[in-house]
Amino acid sequence: METLIDIVLLGFLVLTALAVAKMHDLFAVVMLSGIYSLLSASLFLDLDAVDVAFTEASVGAGISTLLMLASLKLVGRFEKRTRYRPMLALGVVLATGTLLIYGTLDMPHFGSAEAPVHQHVAPRYLNDSMEEVGVPNVVTSVLASYRGYDTLGETLVVFTAAIGVISLLRVSRRTKEEEKQKTPADMQQQIILRVVVKWLLPLILIFALYVQFHGDYGPGGGFQAGVIFAAGIILYTMLFGLNNASRVFQPEHLERIAALGVLLYAGVGIGCMVLGGNFLDYNGLSHDPVHGQHLGILLVELGVGLTVASVMITIFFKFTWRTVKHKYVKKR
């Protein structure tokens, strides 16, 4: 059964990817790439990677598609046809593909339990993590404890992206002032949506908190929670206008929260050092090692959640302010 689903999904993925390559309407391309992400999420689920599926669905199909649509609004919808025949590109791709296919020939078979991947490092995570870390979701214990340093790096990557987007898409105070004087948001007339969202919003935010704190036991964790929280705020912004949303979430505060999230994560590491362990060695945080691990994971996941939520909201705001600004540039 799993194999059948696997093949069907892969088939759909190939079709979607081909359609992306073929289409010239960028709107369709972006929507297809959203579909591609959603199909990937399903495939990940089929391959037992529940946390990855969760993340891919919220990031790839959610935030990433949204950002692409926002930029399409700024850059225009149609791709022009290329003038030359891209033989060189085709050659490079074929060479790369051949090397990869050649590489697959000696691979252990798909799904085999004897593959080297399952022999050396991974068994310890599955067998001992319950005593050593005490968290049933092994992905969480590897992510936040065994390889917690990678996750600190990952949080820093998100933070770096925010710095990049902020510096590229700055909007002057004047534009913001002008925006305040005017006009309802684009979708402000959609009464039904507004009513529905008013009901949905608290549920979305509570769900985000659930995902944040339930990551130890089920799929989820700081990253997914941050994205869901941001999605709720983005939904609100689309229906009730940037002005209302940015009254609650002021850009400077968001930047500070993003920085604080990283500081919280790295600060836990420093704290562990002060208490006599190595960097990010949570065992020392409490008299009982497993208790210490729990506390450490809780805190670093909180750091991740704070940074991710505020960065995603910031990035969305920056793109939206840019569209607002373009409206005025055209008018002036």
Partner: peptide, 15 residues
């Protein structure tokens, strides 16, 4: 679980 953890990181880098 290890590939899952690595890919979680890689997805974030991708976005």
């Amino acid at each position: 679980p290890l590939p899952h953890v690595l890919i979680l990181t890689a997805i974030v880098v991708g976005i």
